[in-house]
Amino acid sequence: MCIAAWVWQAHPVHQLLLLLNRDEFHSRPTKAVGWWGEGSKKILGGRDVLGGGTWMGCTKDGRLAFLTNVLEPDAMPGARTRGDLPLRFLQSNKSPLEVATEVAKEADEYNGFNLVLADLTTNVMVYVSNRPKGQPATIQLVSPGLHVLSNARLDSPWQKAIRLGKNFRELLRKHGDDEVEAKDIVESLMTDTTKADKDRLPNTGCDPNWEHGLSSIFIEVQTDQGLYGTRSTAVLSVNYAGEASLYEKYLESGIWKDHTVHYQIE
C-alpha cells in the first residue's frame, strides 16, 4: 500500500526530503534500489520483478515519480499495472503536468492509485489520482510545504498520516537548519508500528481487521497468501545545489540491509 511524507521547497537545506515505506507481500520478487534502463534515461529506484515497474524512481535530469495504492475492497481484474505509471514520466521528456493529463485520460484502466510527479529542475510537482471511483481523475499542483500521502487522497487525515506528519515536523524542528540524516529518519519515523484506534479507522469498505492491520506506518500482517507488510524504506534527499542521495533500508531473504546511492542532478 505504501506511505510517503515529504517536505518540498520549505526547508533551509533540503529542496526535497522524501520518506517512503513500500508495503507488499514478502514473497513478491523485488530488486533493491539501483540504476537500471538505457542511455540518458537511466532510472534510480527499486523494481518490481513481477510487473516490471517501480513504486519510486528518479533520474539524473531531476525527474522523480512515486505512487501509493488506494485502499479499497475489490481490485479490478485485468487492470494495467500501476508500477508502469512512474516509468511513463521518468522515461519521457514531458512536463509533470503533461504526463499527469495523459494518465488522467486513462485512469479508469487502473486500480486505485495516487501518483506524484516532480521535476526538480523546474520546481514543479503534480499529484494525480483516479479515486473516488466513477469521478474524473484529480490533478493538482503540490504546494511548497510538508505533505503526507497514504492510501487515500493527498493529505487525507488518516490517523497514520497525521501521526507521521506530526512526528516529521517535530524531527525537522529539532534539527533546525541542519541536514537530517537518512538513518535517523528511518529509525525515528518509519519503523513506527503504532496502529490506529479502531474507532478512528477509515471507512473504505474493506474488512475492519484488514484495515486495522494496515493502519500503522510500518506494517506486518499475516494473511492466507503469506506475510504482507513493509518491505523497504527509502529516503531521498536533494539540496538546492542538486546534490542528491537515495538511502534504502530493505528486506532481502529475511535480512534487513541498507545502502546509499549519491548522484548529481544535471
Rank of each mutant, 00 (worst) to 15 (best):
G254A: 10
R88V: 11
L172E: 08
H11P: 04
T230H: 10
A161P: 06
E38M: 06
V99D: 03
R28W: 11
P208R: 10
Q15P: 04
L141K: 14
P144I: 05
V186K: 00
D224S: 11
M56D: 09
P73I: 08
L19H: 08
P86D: 01
M190P: 06
A4H: 00
G176K: 05
G226C: 09
V49Q: 12
G83E: 06
W256P: 02
N167G: 09
A65Q: 07
S143C: 04
L189I: 03
A196M: 09
R28K: 14
A4F: 00
V261R: 03
D197E: 15
M76I: 14
A244R: 00
V124E: 15
A5K: 00
N69H: 03
G254R: 12
G52W: 11
E170F: 07
N209G: 04
S215G: 13
W55C: 03
E248C: 03
K257P: 07
G176H: 03
K183F: 14
V103Q: 10
W55Q: 05
H147C: 09
E170W: 11
D207E: 15
K249D: 10
I3T: 08
G229Q: 07
L16K: 05
G51W: 04
Q140H: 13
T101H: 02
G39A: 15
D177C: 06
E243T: 11
K183A: 13
T194N: 07
E170Y: 04
N151D: 10
G83T: 05
Y110M: 09
F25P: 01
K41P: 00
A100L: 05
R169Q: 12
T54W: 01
Y127D: 05
G83A: 03
D224P: 04
A182I: 02
L90F: 12
T68L: 04
F113Q: 00
V235W: 00
G78W: 06
N69D: 08
E187K: 12
A241H: 13
Q222F: 10
T194C: 02
G205I: 14
Y110K: 04
W210R: 13
I219T: 09
D74G: 01
S237G: 03
D258A: 08
K31S: 13
G145T: 10
I162L: 14
V142W: 02
L171Q: 07
G165M: 07
I265S: 02
I255H: 14
S92V: 11
I185G: 01
E72I: 11
V180C: 00
M1I: 11
P144Y: 01
I3F: 01
R173P: 02
K160Y: 13
P12G: 04
K60N: 01
A234F: 01
V238D: 00
C58T: 15
G78Q: 06
R200F: 08
R173C: 02
E102L: 12
S129F: 05
L97M: 15
W36A: 05
T260S: 14
L189S: 00
V7D: 01
K195R: 15
T193Q: 13
C2T: 07
A32I: 09
A100Q: 02
Y263T: 11
W55P: 08
R28A: 08
L50C: 03
L67G: 02
F113I: 01
R200N: 13
A196K: 09
G229M: 07
D192V: 10
I43N: 07
H212M: 06
D258G: 03
K94Y: 06
L50K: 13
